[in-house]
Structure formats: C-alpha cells, structure tokens
Amino acid sequence: MTPSKSSNARDYAALDDRVLVELVLQGDLEAFRDITRRCNQRLFRVARGIVKDDSEAEDIVQESYVRAFEKLASFRGDAALLTWLTRIVLNEAYGRLRRRRMNVDMEHIEAAQMKSENVVSFSPRYGVEDPAVAAGRAQARQLLERAIDQLPEAFRIVFLMREIEGCTVEETAVCLDLRSETVKTRLHRARRLLRAQLKDTLAATMADAFPFLGARCDHMTDTVMKRLNP
C-alpha cells in the first residue's frame, strides 16, 4: 500500500468505515486521517487507562495507527474498525507494560508511583462558562480521574470502556478477550471501589473524564499523517 493523496474532493465524514478502509487501500491518505479523527478519543482513553500517562498514551496510539496502516489489508470487517484498532492499541500498551516491568528498577518504580499521584490536567471540553462552575467541574473530574487511576488494572480498563467510552459488554469482551460474564463482574467491582471513594455525587462527571478532542486530537492525527507520508 503506497501512501498518496486523493485528487477528488470527498465528504469523508459521510462515509462508513468499510468505505474508508477501501479508500485507504487505494492510496487515499485523507481517508486514513478521517479514521484517526473518529477513533482518537477512544484509543487514547484505552491506552491511558493502561499506562496512566498522557504522553505515553499518545505515543502508543500513534504507533498503533502506523501498525494498523501497515496491515490494513488484513482487516476483514468481522468486527468494527474501532474494535480492531482498540485491540492493536491494547496489545501495544500491554507490551510496553511487560517491557517496563522487566527492565525497571526500584528507583524507577518509586518515581512512577509519585508521578501517578499528580493531578492530570486536561484542556476543557466546554466553551466559556462561569469560572466557579468550571473550577468545580475541573475539581470533580480530577477526583474522578485519580480514583480511576487507582483501580486495579483489570477493573480500570473495563470501567473505561464500559462507563466512559460507552462500549457494549460484547464489544468490551471482544477487545479484551474476556467472557461477557467476566466483563460484567469486573465492572461491578470497579463501580463498588469507585463508590467507596467518590459517592454518587460525581457520577455526572464520568462522561467528561479523559477528553481528547480539539487541538490535542488534531496534533496526534497530524503526527501520524506525517509519519505515513513524510
């Protein structure tokens, strides 16, 4: 598959995933750009749920896109394109964790633990709003993100996919190679752990956690496109 730019003006947003994949295989890089924009937020959230670091999560997603591009011809459509990409991201993220655990020494472990306690700062998803409301929303979101980061890894990724990304039980099970019953059990236990820290008053902020839209989304997409078409 040789990268090239499409000479025809297309409304990519109106095309479904299968059509976009076919266009990419025909050499239309702009179709792949649209794929990344559709998938960036889900993939970033999943990667960050595993590594708990913004920069590394972005790098994981970028690397996964390049790998997906290289083997896009193997995509058969048995699952949704986003599901297929999610599994690539999961493999990359867990692979990095395995390498990290094999090589890191105690000093690095302690540094990582200290870093994980820092407040994660995200750009606001909303427009202009009352400063007091914005501050309250930001504080609530930070509390939620901290609590999610503290969940055991197996529960954390299930919670992110089901509650924050809104994936179905079946899609989550396929992505994580789990039984549906296991997904339900882990989600139930994750909710119980979070309720112990947050109470139900923070439930309304879940949809705002780990946003990845706007400039950051554009930056990651542009970085991927430059790698594919230097």
Results as ranks from 00 to 15, higher is better:
A154L: 02
R162L: 02
E181P: 01
D200G: 02
E117Q: 08
A173W: 06
L81F: 09
E110K: 14
N103G: 05
A135W: 11
Q113L: 14
R87T: 15
Q197M: 04
L82V: 15
L144R: 01
V158F: 09
V119K: 13
L160K: 04
L187W: 07
V128D: 11
D78F: 11
L176R: 13
Q142G: 08
A154S: 04
I164R: 02
P211D: 05
I157C: 05
V120S: 09
E70N: 13
A80L: 11
L198D: 00
R195C: 03
L144K: 01
Q113G: 03
L193E: 12
T86K: 06
L72R: 14
V174H: 07
P124W: 06
A203M: 01
A134R: 15
C175R: 15
L178T: 12
K115D: 09
P124V: 06
R137T: 07
L82R: 07
I88S: 07
D149P: 01
Q197W: 01
F210I: 06
N103V: 06
D177G: 03
T182S: 03
R191N: 10
R195G: 04
L160I: 14
Y126S: 14
R76Q: 13
V133S: 14
R141A: 07
R67M: 04
A79S: 09
K184S: 14
R100V: 03
A207S: 04
F122G: 03
I88Q: 11
T168R: 15
V158K: 09
E92H: 05
V174R: 08
A147R: 00
Q139G: 07
G77R: 08
K184D: 04
T86I: 06
V174I: 14
V158P: 08
L144I: 11
A111G: 09
G127K: 07
N118T: 13
V133K: 13
E92Q: 10
V104E: 14
A80H: 09
A154R: 05
E145F: 01
E170Q: 15
A196S: 09
H188F: 00
A68E: 12
Y94F: 00
H108C: 10
E170L: 15
A68G: 10
